[in-house]
Design a protein around this nucleic acid. Structure first.
Lengths: 210, 210
DNA sequence: TTTATTTCTGAACAATGTTCATTGAACTAT
DNA sequence: ATAGTTCAATGAACATTGTTCAGAAATAAA
């Protein structure tokens, strides 16, 4: 005995191989072109084999989502070190839009594709019992506004979670339009994000503007 | 002769019938469930017949988009009568989000589905040689900011088109998240839209806020 | 009525996700 | 070592998709 652990390892390895292949195809050809047969060809197995490791194409998509949330969170995390909440908000906005523009396929998948995937991925709580990466990314924003309150930049009776939702959706709006209709908006993304952020900050605390 | 006109009419009639059936299916089951065979069954023709009236499923989608832009514009148009630019902006925001929440399938199709459809539909200029409904909807927003400038609510050196893009994308962000992950945002759409709009207005002209 | 044209059909094709009886290799027990 | 068992892997098969096209049916022209 004792070989069962190797089995487990091999299983996990092929599982990861499938996910890697799926990710590459999604990045290269878009999620709609992600085909079970293409994955099979990439990992050099028969199509049916994939079903021994994943329940369905949907489940693969969900796992890709989870991975995507993680990557996004890792892009945002470094901003946590910025002390000034307003500067931090600007940095988050910048990092977030960078992520979306640099990884359009991933961004589409985690926020713009079938709700099925996103909801399943968001509600899956990882091993460490903490919230998933998606939730933690939102928390980053909530903390910005909480810190602004602590620094008296913001009235203490405004709802931080609410502001976080508004800021995030605004950011997402810019990105999703940029990704869906490249060239339709005449203003570059960076500028849109910058003006949006500054206007938002000015709107929050008019007396402190600039 | 003279029957050629009737032919034209009959052709246009069946074409419209196909679009109507397609729209109903899209509204009922979502765009992904819009199947050529389902359309054929709905209009009681063989699947192949549809191809005598439309080049492909994509072309049907594009026509549905055009129709969708028209409907959206008609929802926004009444706001043009509101004299005060700020009130008008609030009314546009409200009408826009109402449209999206009331017609989720249409909204998804015209702004969140394949860029192919949207781009083709947006670049198609209608018979009257004016801009399409999509463009005219954006113009509505641009005018708001132009009017604000005229009323000295806004510095004359800000770019109205830019502000229109930012406001629209922010609005779209709220809607697209609400449509894709219903229940994920804890705040009701109306409130998000309201706070976003007020914050935006406050950010534009801090001295005039409220 | 006969001929020509147009409209429509429905079988067929390739590609999709998914299933499952069969294979064959690796592991276990004797 | 041999026999038995397990289990990963196969690849043919199924249903469903968009799309095509030779031929049937209906309509118009002569």
């Amino acid at each position: 005995m004792g070989s069962s652990e190797r089995k487990e390892r091999q299983k996990a390895q092929l599982q990861q191989q499938i996910l890697d292949a799926a990710k590459e195809i999604t990045i290269r050809d878009g999620f709609a072109a992600l085909t079970m047969r293409k994955i099979a060809q990439a990992i050099e197995y028969a199509p049916g084999t994939i079903y021994l490791y994943f329940e369905s194409r949907d489940e693969i998509a969900i796992q890709l989502c989870r991975q995507g949330y993680q990557e996004l969170f890792e892009c945002l995390q470094p901003t946590m070190n910025i002390a000034d909440p307003r500067d931090r908000l600007r940095a988050i906005a910048s990092a977030y839009s960078d992520f979306g523009l640099t990884n359009p396929a991933t961004y589409r998948l985690i926020f713009m594709e079938d709700p099925k995937f996103t909801n399943a991925a968001l509600s899956q709580v990882p091993i460490d019992r903490e919230d998933g990466a998606g939730m933690r990314s939102i928390q980053l924003l909530v903390k910005v506004f909480d810190d602004m309150k602590a620094d008296r930049m913001l009235s203490s009776d405004v709802n931080s979670a609410r502001l976080a939702e508004i800021f995030w959706t605004s950011l997402h709006g810019i990105l999703s339009i940029k990704l869906t209709f490249p060239g339709f908006l005449t203003t570059p993304s960076e500028e849109l994000v910058k003006i949006m952020t500054d206007t938002f900050l000015a709107g929050l605390s008019p007396d402190l503007s600039l």
